[in-house]
Each structure stands twice: as C-alpha cells, then as structure tokens.
C-alpha cells in the first residue's frame, strides 16, 4: 500500500531527509508533516512516514505513541491545551480548565460535535511567568482569566484563524489579529 500526501508534504519531507547525517532522524519532522495534513497520526500517516524513511511501520508507531504531541486520535480544528503544572496552577489554572470544560461540555480529548474544539490538560509549556496560560493549536495565550479565555474562544469561532504550526510567523498571534504577542522577560 502506498500512501500519497500533498506535493508540498512530499517536498518538505525530502528536504528534512537531507538535513541530517542519518535519515532516521527525519522521523519526527515527517510525523509532524503528516499530522498537519491528516489531522492526527492515522494508519496512513504511519505508513507514509515508514515508506519515506525506509523503515518498518512499527518503528514509526513506537515513536508516534511515545510523544504526546502526536495525536493518536483526531482532535478538534482548535485543540486547547491548558497547562496544569504548578506555576499555572498557583495562578488559577484550575479555573481555566473548568471554564473550557464548561464552555465545551465535552470530556478531555473528545471532539465537539461540530468538529471545532477539543481540549486537554497538559504539563508545563514553558510559559510559567505568564500563567495561567493555554495553547490553542501552536499559539500561546497567556495571563488568562476565564473571561479572557471565553472572549478568545468566541473570536476564534467567529474568525476561524489559521493557528497551525506552519502558520506561526514572526508576529505571533497574527492568526488572531490584535491579540497581544506572547512575550517573556
């Protein structure tokens, strides 16, 4: 069985393969490419990566299942990851999770019926001085309050911005215009 992804994905993976002294190192970038295109690490994604790298699918599978950022089942178009580690918890992270849960009415990792949302609690995202915070797809939203987060979610629902990793450009938050840039110091 041969799986084909978009021409762009095929080009990107070939570029990654050339970067490393050993082609196997390109497994992780290849998984990201497949995930962004297919939405999660499906059986097709595993097959595609294995064929591209030239290894057995099981070797791709063990990598994909070890790391939490590869989704083994579909997530919503907007996947909210609320930090639950201490620094955020001390600043009110609990209220953020409760707020997301209440707004969506779903269980963690469950996709909302309209396919728009899913959420989970995750460990430290490295934004501890600006907690509580969450990540929506690959964008950080910091110094949150439940009210602020609800506003953000409303705007996202209305504007449908592209918040995927490949859309992160220099002005972070560009996917949600006018939203303060993620900053540390």
């Amino acid at each position: 069985m041969t799986v084909k992804l978009s021409a762009q994905a095929e080009t990107k993976v070939e570029e990654y393969k050339k970067l490393y002294p050993n082609v196997r190192s390109a497994i992780m970038p290849a998984l990201y490419i497949a995930q962004e295109e297919l939405g999660s690490i499906t059986a097709d994604a595993i097959t595609w990566v294995a064929e591209k790298i030239g290894i057995a699918p099981v070797q791709v599978m063990e990598v994909a299942t070890f790391y939490t950022m590869y989704y083994k089942k579909p997530v919503g178009k907007y996947h909210v990851q609320v930090c639950r580690t201490l620094s955020c918890a001390l600043m009110g992270g609990r209220a953020i999770t409760e707020c997301v849960k209440k707004r969506l009415g779903t269980a963690p990792h469950e996709v909302s019926p309209d396919g728009q949302w899913s959420y989970e609690e995750v460990e430290c995202l490295g934004s501890c001085g600006t907690g509580p915070m969450c990540q929506i797809n690959d964008h950080f939203f910091e110094n949150l309050t439940p009210e602020k987060l609800l506003q953000i979610m409303d705007r996202i629902e209305k504007e449908q911005p592209d918040l995927r990793f490949s859309a992160v450009r220099d002005a972070l938050g560009e996917g949600l215009k006018g939203y303060p840039k993620s900053e540390v110091i």
Binding site: T85, L86, S87, E123, C124, G126, S127, C128, G129, V184, I185
Partner: peptide
C-alpha cells in the same frame, strides 16, 4: 528542550 517546570529562561534567548 527546556521542559523543567518553572523554567522559561532559554525561551527568552531563543526568541529575543
């Protein structure tokens, strides 16, 4: 990799 909880110092250097 900077995944130690409470640590976000390298992020400043990488970003800025």
């Amino acid at each position: 990799d900077e995944s130690e909880p409470g640590t976000f110092k390298d992020r400043v250097l990488l970003e800025r």
